[in-house]
């Protein structure tokens, strides 16, 4: 009996902060306040607990344990006080899933026009999963997928549909 390609698990207790700023000017301040190096374009840096993802040339997303959110918000706001920047708590904005299992990449390959052979180890890809916007990166042995909160049920459904046992993409 074949097993599911992957397991889909919702992730709770995650804090998220969006940071918009001139990264070349304010990068050091953000790095210091967030405790993480600034990621290169389309990458994500992490220390195991916190992660800092590159969303756009002037936008980062800090992911951290929910309990640390308020403190990090204050730290970032203070660090960027003299800077033209926007720091906002977006912890409730998204639906987050961890996709783990033997064929996790194939699950995403069914939904996203992403070339995984060209996807770096520390890559963060913003793209489309079927009909909704998502971002994903490697997390542990699998992938972490974030989408919008309102379409979280849809995202979970299409992820789960893509894991049907026996539906792997290997040539047969």
């Amino acid at each position: 009996m074949p097993e599911a390609l992957a397991t889909i698990a919702p992730v709770a207790g995650l804090g998220m902060i969006t940071i918009r700023a001139n990264l070349s000017r304010a990068g050091d301040a953000i790095a210091e306040a967030s405790g993480l190096p600034i990621p290169e374009a389309t990458r994500i840096t992490t220390d195991g607990s916190r992660s800092l993802g590159w969303m756009s040339p002037d936008e980062l997303l800090l992911l951290l344990p929910a309990a640390e959110t308020a403190e990090a918000l204050t730290a970032l706001t203070n660090a960027l006080a003299g800077e033209h920047a926007l720091v906002a708590d977006v912890s409730d904005l998204r639906a987050v899933f961890d996709v783990t299992g033997p064929k996790v990449q194939q699950v995403l390959q069914k939904l996203s026009p992403t070339d995984f052979a060209a996807f770096p180890k520390d890559g963060l890809r913003r793209t489309r999963a079927a009909q909704v916007a998502v971002a994903f990166w490697r997390q542990g042995k699998g992938f972490r997928v974030i989408g919008m909160r309102s379409t979280g049920d849809y995202l979970r459904l299409i992820l789960e549909n893509a894991t049907i046992p026996g539906s792997d993409l290997e040539p047969r």
């Binding site: 374009a41 389309t42 590159w54 756009s56 040339p57 026009p113 890809r125 913003r126 793209t127 489309r128």
Partner: peptide, 11 residues
């Protein structure tokens, strides 16, 4: 030209 991703039209 901002992120270097070669995106397809649906993106």
């Amino acid at each position: 030209p901002y992120c270097g991703i070669t995106a397809e039209e649906t993106e």
